[in-house]
């Protein structure tokens, strides 16, 4: 099998990622792996997750080595810490919390591949996320309100409506 990166040497490094049953396979040669700053399995340190990741970020089959794609990555930059997208894809780490904002357009495919998902549904911090908590609570209440109306349980529905109005007062106008 040929290396996906250079297309010349035989691929000796193979990795498979399965997220939600979706399988992605990569095959590259040692030289390309080393060039990309990746460690070879079996040597000290091993093949770390960051190396795998930068693989995921850089591999766009078809446009590899395409100069305009590389150039584009140079131009996307986090205004807060200065990290460019191309640096990010090489290191596999964000520089600061604002990187998420500046690289946002490119993150969905990456998160999709790594996690199979793009949106957080877990814990919301009390202070930093207070309005998000209210929002989630509102969504829940509205859903329940719909349900009660369909069930023709109007007394419960009225109580829910009042609760929703009360909560809506607390949302700061954006």
């Amino acid at each position: 099998m040929q290396c996906q990166e250079c297309g010349k040497r035989p691929a000796t490094l193979h990795f498979t990622k399965i997220v939600n049953g979706e399988k992605t396979e990569f095959h590259i040669c040692e030289a390309c792996a080393r060039e990309k700053g990746e460690m070879i399995p079996g040597t000290t340190g091993g093949f770390s997750i960051h190396n795998l990741l930068s693989g995921l970020m850089d591999f766009h089959p078809g446009i590899q080595g395409h100069p305009s794609a590389a150039k584009q990555n140079e131009n996307i930059r986090c205004e807060e810490c200065g990290l460019t997208y191309s640096q990010f894809s090489k290191i596999g780490r964000f520089g600061c919390s604002s990187c998420y904002k500046y690289f946002n357009d490119r993150l969905d495919p990456l998160f999709k591949r790594v996690h199979g998902n793009t949106v957080h549904v877990g814990k919301v911090p009390k202070r930093a996320g207070s309005h998000i908590q209210v929002q989630r609570k509102l969504d829940d209440l509205r859903r329940e309100l719909q349900y009660r109306i369909v069930q023709e349980e109007f007394e419960e529905a009225a109580a829910l409506r009042d609760q929703i109005r009360e909560l809506e007062k607390n949302i700061p106008a954006e």
Partner: peptide, 23 residues
């Protein structure tokens, strides 16, 4: 969290240095 301001985003959750930990 009572004492310090966490980096948190409504969509992405807790923001981490490595994309494998986000959320």
């Amino acid at each position: 969290e009572d004492h310090v301001d966490y980096a948190f985003d409504g969509n992405r959750g807790f923001l981490t240095s490595c994309p494998t930990n986000v959320g």
